[in-house]
Amino acid sequence: MEENQLEKNSNTNGNQKGSSDYDVVIIGGGPAGSSAAIYASRSGLKTLVVDKGLTSGALGITSKIVNYPGITDEISGAELVEKMRTQAKSFGAEYISDKVIGVDLQSDVKSVFGNGGVYTSRSVIISTGSMGRGSRIKGEDRLLGHGVSYCATCDAAFYRDKYVAVAGNNDEAIEEALFLTKFAKQVYFLSQTEHLIASEELINELQKNQKVVLYSGSKIKEIIGQNRVEAVEAVRKDQSEVLLNVSGVFVYLQGGRPVTDFTQGQLEVSQGGCLIVDASYQTNIPGVYAVGDVLCTHVKQVIVSAAEGAIAAMAVEKELNGRSRMMVDWSEKKQ
């Protein structure tokens, strides 16, 4: 995480009453979050989007998008997300690259905790998508904190001159691996897919780094160690198995579950574990909304996510400005 960001935010005390940094903090900057950011910032709300990576979301990893209205040129999902982000920034929304790990939604001033800082706001929109992991690697839970980690910025210093493994294939995993190279002796990067899903520059940086050994198409089968991580056993694309002696394993794998772990039970969920929202996408906590794929009842399409983001942002504006009805953004009015 950028140092200056960290300094800037490290003094913010989450639970202070009264003042907050933003009108709305949006967690996740995919099509749902970025559409919310467009509407929120255009309506004059001080808007921050906290997102952990362009290729960490469903649209970011989609190679081609052909059914988003108005986009007729061949375009990748990542390019479409970038366009949405650029549009939101043009209306004043800020973006910060950080992974959200916790929230305090109960107080009037909401706090969003990231690995790099604490962000406070009057309202929160959750749009983290549904690429959360379900299953764990054998040995992962048992060795958490004893070699298994999900945060290089937090724990890299414990691996000075040691061998570590990173499991993942997106920009989040690559950035964390590059951060680890500042401390570790060697970083084994195990990508479950043959190709990495990130920008060319980032992939090049990883490939060029002398400390990184890339194992593409390799999946960690087991994390081994009695009391602390001693090795990982991985299966390579040709089905051969490899044992790598490491002291640490940093895991950035994804799956198909709604990403809600950071809410730590603060929001009401259905029996099936889905966040419950009303017609304006507000959760059971006033001022806290959820939109996009993170809602498991939702139709997983970009246009649907974008629409939900817009509705939630208008609802936030209505609430914060004490209006009785949502204000529709007709361009004539603005010009």
Partner: peptide, 10 residues
């Protein structure tokens, strides 16, 4: 803990 650790600040 350490000062640069986000979860610690939480």
């Amino acid at each position: 803990w350490a000062p640069w650790c986000g979860p610690c600040r939480m």
